[in-house]
């Protein structure tokens, strides 16, 4: 009976109840005092909520809403291009540096070894970051949504 009471009360407060259902609801309410109290509470809270609304921002906020999103998407795209350019230039500079270093007979072997280790380390780091980004992008972050 409780389920039916809940359903009918909900229909009543939302004003979608039929006359037959309303009669049924009234007869349920008359069977128990606690139902009557709950019914009155639901009506009162519905009336209180009806008078309220969420604060609406000014029209200017809505006018600029899309352009702010567009700018952020555009900037994200720009950062990707900048990052690609940086990686290309840094990679080219690193290769040039290594070539020059290997050709130079005056540079001590220990400096050549240290430089090679530094560059190899940076390349591994870069590869690791790219791989992580790639796999993070492939998995759907919004698969597990709390309901």
């Amino acid at each position: 009976m409780k389920e039916r009471f809940v359903e009918l009360t909900e229909k009543y407060v939302e004003e979608v109840i039929s006359p037959e259902e309303e009669n049924e609801l009234m007869s349920i309410i008359n069977t128990r005092v606690e139902y009557k109290i709950e019914f009155e509470d639901q009506k009162r809270i519905k009336e209180a909520l009806k008078k309220m609304k969420l604060k609406n921002p000014s029209e200017e906020v809505w006018d600029s809403y899309w352009i702010k999103i567009y700018n952020r998407i555009e900037r994200g795209f720009a950062w990707i291009i900048i990052s690609i350019g940086f990686v290309i230039l840094a990679g080219y500079a690193a290769i040039q540096f290594v070539e020059e270093l290997l050709k130079d007979t005056k540079t001590p072997e220990i400096v050549k070894l240290g430089s090679a280790a530094l560059i190899v380390g940076l390349l591994i780091l870069l590869f690791s970051i790219l791989r992580e980004k790639f796999f993070a992008g492939k998995s759907d972050k919004y698969k597990e949504i709390q309901r």
Partner: peptide, 24 residues
């Protein structure tokens, strides 16, 4: 939006209002 049946929406709303009424 919440991917639940309409019956559950009605029931959840009823109990949410009830809870709100108690807090008020």
């Amino acid at each position: 939006t919440l991917e639940i049946p309409i019956g559950s929406v009605m029931s959840k709303l009823f109990y949410a209002r009830k809870k709100l009424s108690e807090i008020l």
